[in-house]
């Protein structure tokens, strides 16, 4: 536990040691608010954050890989991975420390969107249930994207390659269940495979959480998926840390 906390602290502080944290937070806050107001926050005449949350899946697709890409790629490039893995820590501890540091960063970003909650509270009487579940869903979704991106960061020392692969992989998970994709696959694949693809999709689960329906199976889906990718990250690092 001590090792996880040490890695976590170093990693979280290093976001703020470079302009990365500030650039990330500023861009996230600008884009998330801009999308909300541009997509009819006032026109809908509802005291709800539905529009605000509905942008999160797309926004995170670009921004989560952006903060995750350096986590392992940079260690590989600067060779500090050799320092890290000759300290008395296990690969799992290192992966978890880094994951939680980046997750906290995303949590901070989401927390800083609180003025929009104050705005709807000032303008009307919102139902706080969907707002809370919306935030829970966003944190879970961000964690899933993050674990995918962490895996691709561990694959390569090139941050750009890691970013592109992460965006594509996150995009696949997001859009897997969209009707147009399922329709196009309908004639080509057997029905049970299509059902599996559909069930892996982020969007339908995120939408139901965001509507206020917090089901155990949706929460466990995100948690299990995240854990799976983290496990894969540990495996890939143990196999190829020296390459």
């Amino acid at each position: 536990m001590n090792s996880i906390i040490s890695i976590f602290k170093r990693e979280f502080q290093s976001y703020f040691a470079t302009p990365l944290a500030y650039v990330f937070l500023t861009i996230f806050l600008i884009l998330s608010s801009y999308q909300t107001f541009a997509n009819g926050f006032f026109e809908s005449r509802q005291a709800s954050l539905r529009i605000f949350f509905s942008n999160m899946p797309i926004l995170f697709i670009l921004l989560v890989p952006a903060i995750a890409m350096r986590l392992w790629s940079e260690e590989r490039k600067s060779k500090s991975i050799e320092l890290l893995f000759t300290l008395p820590i296990t690969t799992t501890q290192a992966v978890l420390g880094k994951f939680f540091a980046a997750w906290l960063m995303l949590f901070v970003a989401l927390f800083l969107t609180f003025p929009i909650v104050i705005s709807v509270a000032y303008l009307g009487t919102p139902d706080y249930g969907p707002i809370i579940t919306g935030y829970v869903g966003s944190v879970l979704l961000a964690g899933s994207y993050l674990s995918i991106s962490l895996f691709f960061s561990a694959l390569t020392k090139n941050q750009v390659i890691s970013f592109i692969l992460s965006v594509v992989a996150c995009g696949c998970f997001l859009y897997a269940g969209s009707p147009s994709i399922l329709e196009s696959l309908q004639n080509k694949l057997p029905i049970n495979i299509i059902e599996i693809i559909e069930s892996l999709s982020f969007i339908s689960r995120f939408e139901s959480i965001q509507r206020g329906v917090l089901q155990l199976r949706d929460i466990s889906f995100f948690l299990v998926l995240g854990a799976g990718w983290l496990w894969a990250t540990v495996v890939i690092l143990e196999e190829r840390k020296a390459e």
């Binding site: 906390i5 040490s6 300290l87 820590i89």
Partner: peptide, 18 residues
């Protein structure tokens, strides 16, 4: 190799923590 964005004091403190 070390963490270039850190200063030696924080770097050594990190090693001590671990």
């Amino acid at each position: 190799p070390s963490y270039e964005e850190m200063n030696p004091y924080n770097f050594l403190k990190f090693i001590c923590n671990i």
